[in-house]
């Protein structure tokens, strides 16, 4: 049995993003980040370093956070992709988003989509995190403004809100 190579010319892909199937025609060299932003207009996911060193492009793949800038789109077929655009329920903000607004969990806001996505995934796995768990869970998202104390407060407040809603 031989390997079935696709490309280097564009190949049709079906990507499941925020609960919807999207068809795109892209070369295998395209990253998930470039397909989200340039093919699908989902520009909430930010391109920071483009080298997997800043976390601005964080998305959720099958329940786990990943850097879209180092993920090839062709390897995302059949996976559940959640971007920052899929975090709110319609016009109702996710408790993490509301907490970032209430507690000023950002300054310039560029890293915020990645921070929010990481916090949502963290609280899905660890609903009542300690401060150490928040710091460890958010370690892959750099904030060059240095809003870390407010980010940690925001995540803790979101955990409390979510616990109340559960209760």
């Amino acid at each position: 049995m031989a390997l079935n190579f696709r490309g280097p010319d564009a190949v049709p892909l079906t990507l499941q993003i925020n609960g919807e199937a999207h068809q795109v025609l892209v070369e295998p060299r395209r990253t998930l980040l470039s397909v989200l932003r340039e093919e699908l207009g989902l520009t909430g996911t930010k391109r920071g370093c483009g080298q997997g060193q800043c976390g601005a492009c964080t998305v959720i793949l099958d329940g786990e956070t990943a850097y879209a800038c180092l993920t090839l789109a062709i390897e995302c077929e059949g996976r559940e992709i959640v971007t920052i655009e899929g975090i709110a329920q319609g016009d109702a903000l996710h408790p993490v988003q509301a907490a970032f607004i209430q507690h000023d969990g950002y300054q310039c806001g560029f890293c915020t989509p990645g921070q929010v996505v990481s916090a949502v995934a963290l609280l899905a796995h660890t609903p009542q995190p300690s401060e150490a768990e928040i710091r460890a869970g958010m370690a892959g998202n750099i904030c060059r403004c240095g809003a870390y104390p407010a980010i940690i407060r925001s995540v803790r407040a979101a955990a409390e809100t979510m616990a109340e809603q559960e209760g």
């Binding site: 031989a2 390997l3 079935n4 696709r6 490309g7 280097p8 070369e27 295998p28 060299r29 090839l72």
Partner: peptide
């Protein structure tokens, strides 16, 4: 930071992988 063009395949067996590398 555009990546050069390349072809891509999903591996199904180790034999076919090592035959191609």
């Amino acid at each position: 930071m555009t990546i050069h063009r390349f072809a891509h395949a999903d591996a199904a067996s180790l034999q076919e992988v090592v035959a191609a590398l």
